[in-house]
Design a protein around this nucleic acid. Structure first.
Length: 562
RNA sequence: UGGGGCGUAGCCAAGCGGCAAGGCACAGGGUUUUGGUCCCUGCAUUCGGAGGUUCGAAUCCUCCCGCCCCAGCCA
């Protein structure tokens, strides 16, 4: 029932045992609304909401919206719907850092009054120079010793809009020689004459992350503030601000962010893929965004299971995307309806089957779940099978159709291939003439003879037209972030990551398929009806993931031998 | 050359002084009207390395090596 142990749970359990925060557990998921959520965020969402659930606590959704230049309502709406879709509920505790702007301003004034913050009038380049380097101490700004009165006055004027952008900033007065760069008088407020998507033109100064985040956590009574590893250096500042202000002090805990191979999980890179048109929007099914995974056909449960399986720790890691694929197969195997669909059709004619005759055969909807029942599928003289299921000169271990060979058509009959018809110009196989054994109706031979292969098929005259999108890894390189000299991560994009098959044939029961419905196409994989595009003439499917394909492995091994 | 972190199998990851969980991947076998599912089996004499403490070390100590993060008026 409960997810596996991790170091954050141990911290929480120790805190509860010690009576810290009266045994309360209160977490938060604090996205900045400057992009769409991806599966890395899902890890954080599952962690924070999951912790709250497990320890009878609460988890807030808080937008960390302190940079009006980057943030938009479109993003907050998408984030809210993604969190909900994943199955989590902030239950009315939806907050925004921008809700706290007035309070934050007051805190800044307090800091100034304590002599712990000052208005600096150095330019940004100068501030950088004065900061020193990793190995050299910085030096104090000439404005560092302004009087409290002057600081107060100037900070009020900053707020009043009396200065231009960049003219002044409010800085914490800490230690320009600190070995931690973040403690060298970090900027607390900057002037930005940019309207905020929520506060409009109310403010022209905006607080920085380090000042905002810890205080927002404090205001909300957060007990355990979980963030990713790159914020470890910020913790000293997080603690400093809260200590100076003598306010309620949550605990920041850092864990490793998710990395997945064959894809990218950084907002900056995802934004580029979208804006440069490498993909079809934020919900492109090849993207690791929540909206992309949703459109691809992934279920929330499978993503939650994935997040549970990868664990939470402090070591930088790169998870194999095969685990994500395993998680969606695992669920879809249990719940999805089986149907037959032919992606690359090859026509076969059963010469000894009466013309005009049609039989309704029984097919099982889901062998994993007998309660899902059966359905009828039409069988007739002309059928389509998969091109891959026939080979004129079959290699070893090929169990499918070949000249003179007998196979089973699933739920139908045994058929034998009698004749191969080819295009005289190209030599390509255009159709097959076969004969069936009437005794094998349903798929078993009364004489007990066996066949090695079972093929999926569809009746030519009854089949529905469909278009199918096949997807592969977005990148060819396992780690597209490891860019070589003179290269860009986009150079590693897989040119074959998306393929559209326009001539597919699926069984007639699929006329009931609605956008978002998921099916297993037997022997092929799991597919979902696209939710973005549709056509009155044909169905559009996205391949979520293939089935495990042992034959493909054998083939690959055979080819490698040669 | 400053500071903060991290190193357990191909990939994740438990383990917190008593003698290496689990999952994915991979390999073999069984069942099978999906080359799917399911079921067995195998897969670290060893925990980045070297010393030390101890009856006993992945766990404690010392040194070394490797990787990640920090010099935004981004978060």
């Amino acid at each position: 029932m409960s997810a596996p142990p991790n170091f954050i749970k141990y911290i929480i359990e120790a805190d509860i045992a010690a009576g810290k925060n009266d045994g309360r557990v209160h977490t938060r998921f604090p996205p900045e609304p400057n992009g769409y959520l991806h599966i890395g965020h899902a890890k954080s969402i599952c962690l924070n909401f999951g912790l709250a659930e497990e320890y009878n606590g609460l988890c807030n959704l808080r937008f960390d919206d302190t940079d009006p230049a980057k943030e938009e309502v479109e993003y907050v709406e998408s984030i809210k719907s993604d969190v909900r879709w994943l199955g989590f509920d902030w239950d009315g505790r939806l907050y925004h850092a921008s809700d706290y702007f007035e309070q934050l301003f007051e805190y800044a004034v307090q800091l100034i009054k304590k002599g712990k913050a000052y208005v600096d009038s150095l330019g940004s380049d100068e501030i950088r120079e004065y900061r020193g380097t990793l190995t050299q101490a910085g030096k104090n700004s000439p404005y560092r010793e302004r009087s409290i009165e002057e600081n107060l006055d100037m900070f009020e004027r900053m707020r009043a809009g009396e200065y231009e952008e960049g003219a002044h900033v409010l800085r914490a007065k800490i230690d320009m020689a600190s070995p931690n760069m973040l403690m060298r008088d970090p900027t607390l407020y900057r002037i930005k004459k940019v309207p905020h998507y929520r506060t409009g033109g109310m403010w022209v100064i905006y607080p920085m992350y380090d000042f905002t985040h810890c205080l927002s956590d404090s205001i909300e009574g957060i007990t355990h503030s979980n963030c990713t590893l790159e914020f470890e250096n910020n913790r000293e500042l997080y603690d400093w601000v809260l200590d100076q202000l003598e306010v309620y002090h949550p605990q920041q805990i850092e864990f490793a962010r998710l990395n997945l191979n064959y894809t990218v999980l950084s907002k900056r890179k995802l934004i580029r893929l979208v804006e440069e048109g490498h993909v079809d929007g934020w919900d492109d099914p090849r993207l690791p965004t929540i909206s992309g995974l949703r459109r691809r056909g992934y279920t929330p449960e499978s993503i939650r299971n994935f997040c549970e399986r990868i664990g939470v720790a402090k070591a930088d890691s790169m998870v194999d995307i095969a685990l994500l694929e395993y998680c969606i197969r695992e669920q879809l195997n249990k719940i999805s309806l089986r149907v037959m669909g032919v992606l690359r059709p090859l026509k076969i004619i059963i010469d000894n089957y009466p013309e005009e005759q049609v039989e309704e055969l029984d097919a099982i909807n889901n062998p994993e779940d007998p309660d899902m029942g059966t359905r009828k599928i039409p069988f007739s003289r002309e059928l389509y099978i998969e091109q891959d299921d026939f080979m004129e000169e079959p290699p070893k271990k090929f169990f499918r159709l070949a000249p003179g060979r007998e196979v089973r058509l699933r739920y139908a009959y045994f058929i034998t291939c009698d004749e191969v018809v080819k295009d005289p110009a190209t030599g390509a196989v255009t159709e097959l003439h076969c004969s069936y054994d009437p005794q094998t109706r349903g798929g078993d031979a009364p004489d007990g003879r066996k066949v090695k292969g079972t093929l999926h098929w569809v009746s030519a005259s009854h089949a529905l037209d469909a278009r199918v999108h096949l997807y592969e890894h977005l990148f060819l390189k396992e780690n597209p972030n490891a860019v070589e000299e003179d290269k860009d991560f986009s150079d590693y994009l897989n040119p074959n990551s998306s393929e559209t098959l326009k001539n597919c044939k699926v069984e007639p029961s699929l006329n009931a398929a609605r956008p978002g419905d998921r099916y297993q196409f037997e022997r092929l994989g799991y597919f979902s009806v696209d939710t973005k595009y549709n056509s009155p003439e044909y169905l559009i499917f996205n391949r979520i993931v293939t089935l495990r394909d042992t034959w493909a492995k054998i083939l690959k091994a055979q080819q490698q031998k040669k």
